[in-house]
Amino acid sequence: MNDNRETEELLNAFIDGESSPREQTEVKRLIDNDPQAAKRLKELQKCKSLLSSLPHQQAPSKILTNVMAKISAGDSASAQSGQSGQQTFRSKRKALGEIQLFIRKTLTAAAMFILVFGLVLVIYQIVSPQKTQPVARKTSASKGVLENRTVVKETIAVKAEKTAPLSNVSAGSPVQAAAGVLTARLELKTKTQDARIAIQKLLEEKLAPDFVVLPSEAEKTIYTLNCSGEKIAAVQADLENVWNEFASAVLLVETDKPGRLIVIDKITASQVADIASQQNLERQLKAASYFSIVNNIRQSRFAADTTSSKPNDIPRPLLAKDEQAKPSPGQAALIHLTIEIGSE
């Protein structure tokens, strides 16, 4: 049985041209020696010939037409689901990627813009108070003193009240005086209207545009100064001439600590000039502190002098009777001092 099957396979492979050279030799020997094998080979060959001789039919033309129609009509969509699904997924993923990239770029650009804007704002905050004010003054200087004063006055009026600190003048930042420039507030109480006009005229002529007149009371005029020591020194003599007309003169110098002021009461023109002539803010503040203390002492001394019946009669310590001993020879003098403090 197995031999027959092997022979059948051998003969079939032979007629199909699929046998190896060894198998071909074996088949040739077989058909030469075995008439049954030779007959079987012929039968198989006839079988093969019958099938291979069957006529080939032409495919109906409707196959192409129908297939193309199905594909174009989308009937093949389900068949193509694998491929089209993949393509759709790819295209969707690509589109999503592009959108994500665009959003990322936009966010990066926005972040950069905000960062730059923030930096500019910070720099502006730091730089602008010192830069803008002189520029405003310089530009307005050409338009005349009164015009300049009015413009600045209006600006300041919005921001500051009568008691506004000096920082309002410098856009709220701590005073950072340049070398030899005095930034301070001067409050002058004039005895007469003439004196007021005189000082106003003098300042406008000599210090414009480095001063601003703040809203003032009836007799008190408040100026903010931002001028160099040289300018003040130049006008010092004139100032001293009108200074006597003032009922009071107070200079307020802002320290490097926001909100803390050095108040110099009864300040004189020469003291203003001295403070302004200092090279830097530290020295200006020292000078201002010094004058503040000195003026306060003077004021208290003056007040003491005016209230005391005997201004210069300071009670002297008295010696007790029994303490008035004569020193013995060869011994150091021994003095007992008793001070009585009390009010009479």
Binding site: A59, V67, I71, S78, A79, Q80, G82, Q86
Partner: peptide
């Protein structure tokens, strides 16, 4: 045969990506 040929080609084109 014609019907099956059509189905074959439709399936073949549909799965050609594979």
């Amino acid at each position: 045969a014609a019907e099956l040929s059509q189905d074959t080609f439709v399936k073949l084109i549909g799965r050609i990506g594979e």
